[in-house]
Amino acid sequence: MKIAIPVDEKSLQSNVCVSFGRTPYFLIYDIDTKKSVFLDNSAAASTGGAGIKAAQTIADNKANILLTPRLGENAADVLKAAEIKIYKTTTASAKDNIDAFIAGKLPLLNEFHAGFHGHRGN
């Protein structure tokens, strides 16, 4: 089973990134082999739809689980179609959240924000 987490740095000890779509990296952690892979998030610099593209990346890398502090509606639609389960991170470090997930202590994320777009005058 593979877990995806948006992270600020390429390290297991890294903080979870507050943004899903525009995180610099994704950590893909394989629970069975305990191996970590760090992906550059090609969606980070998108003019729009970053969440959609980032979710596509997660799905293409065969993640089964996403741990994230928050998520937009469009990204959630992609992840739901890909049958990826979404949990809410509760602490800062990626490692601590993986441990908490394995211990069954992370809640499911079921509130998705409508995005930060449509601000006038941009």
Binding site: S46, T47, G48, G49, I52, Q56, N74, D77, V78, A81
Partner: peptide, 18 residues
Amino acid sequence: KFNALAYIKDKLIVFEEV
């Protein structure tokens, strides 16, 4: 360029508002 399309589980998804 606007990431209005995704391809998941052999299906194309169109995000109309994007």
